[in-house]
């Protein structure tokens, strides 16, 4: 019996889908059997990021409306034998699925997979309720900007009402130079406002966009900073204790000398 983790944020565009794709890929890299579920019905993206768009025959709504069996709608990943995707429908909208139906599908998937990663749509309406319905755990993604942190706070409040573990936090798109100069919320500040456990910090990396456009999750390329961050998050999900690499570590030798001399 696996576990279902919902990736959510409240605000749109903070990187839920990217995070879902990369956590899924990283878990698959560690040899786990993973199923990604896209619940963003009407605005699906996860299949595009995974480069699996052209293989979709059936989708989530087809399963719900019993036009096909669940296993028929699952798409096997190009790269991994143990990674699958349940795509969302593009022609319907969020109201075509009910939370109970979602619950049933997720619990069915949990029988066969170690991890079911649910990509949640933006907002707090039907789509959110559907995505959260079957989940055992949740991860909240936020960016270091006030509007995103505000929405994350709202979402955490809603998640706390559900019967699941306390949500974990990923701060995505951190830009080192802005945080250092104090022009951006720093990670500590965000954690102190949201008061939940931090499970990962992902730096802003243009390779993420490049990789997404190629339909290849960044977690596949081992050299990028974002990739390492996602792999570390996956390891923390698996229960390993990986220290959070802070921004401090990236300070150069000279800046350390400057700090010592009191120049900054």
């Amino acid at each position: 019996m696996g576990e279902a983790i919902v990736i959510t944020s409240g605000k749109g565009g903070v990187g839920k889908t990217t995070t879902s794709a990369n956590i899924g890929t990283s878990l698959a890299l560690s040899g786990k059997k993973v199923c990604l579920v896209d619940t963003d019905i009407g605005l699906r993206n996860l299949d595009v990021l995974m480069g699996l768009e052209n293989r979709i025959i059936y989708d989530l709504v087809d399963v719900v409306e019993e036009r096909c069996k669940l296993h028929q709608a699952l798409i096997k990943d190009k790269r991994f034998e143990c990674l699958f995707l349940l795509p969302a429908a593009q022609t319907k909208d969020k109201s075509s699925v009910q939370p109970e139906q979602m619950k049933k599908i997720i619990s069915e998937l949990k029988q066969d997979y170690d991890y079911v990663i649910i990509d949640c749509p933006a907002g707090i309406e039907q789509g959110f309720k559907n995505a959260v319905a079957g989940a055992d755990k949740s991860i909240v993604v936020t960016n270091p900007e006030i509007s995103s942190v505000r929405d994350a706070d709202r979402i955490i409040g809603l998640l706390e009402q559900e019967e699941m573990e306390a949500p974990k936090l990923i701060v995505n798109r951190v830009r080192n130079h802005l945080a250092k100069s104090g022009d951006m919320l720093d990670v500590d500040e965000i954690v102190s406002i949201l008061a939940i456990e931090l499970i990962g910090v992902v730096v802003d990396d243009e390779n993420v966009i490049k990789a997404a456009n190629k339909g290849e999750p960044i977690a596949m390329s081992p050299n990028s900073k974002a990739s390492i961050a996602y792999r570390n998050i996956a390891r923390r999900i698996l229960g390993e204790s990986v220290p959070l690499s802070t921004i401090e570590e990236e300070k150069g030798f000279f800046s350390k000398i400057k700090t010592l001399l009191g120049m900054r």
């Binding site: 505000r150 929405d151 706070d153 709202r154 409040g157 809603l158 706390e160 406002i193 949201l194």
Partner: peptide, 25 residues
Amino acid sequence: KVVRSGQVLSVQGDLLLIGDVNPGG
């Protein structure tokens, strides 16, 4: 508890909150 954005905590009598009230709460 933490009173988060969008949450309303309303009581009769005095309130002693052990925790934060975040913006929007």
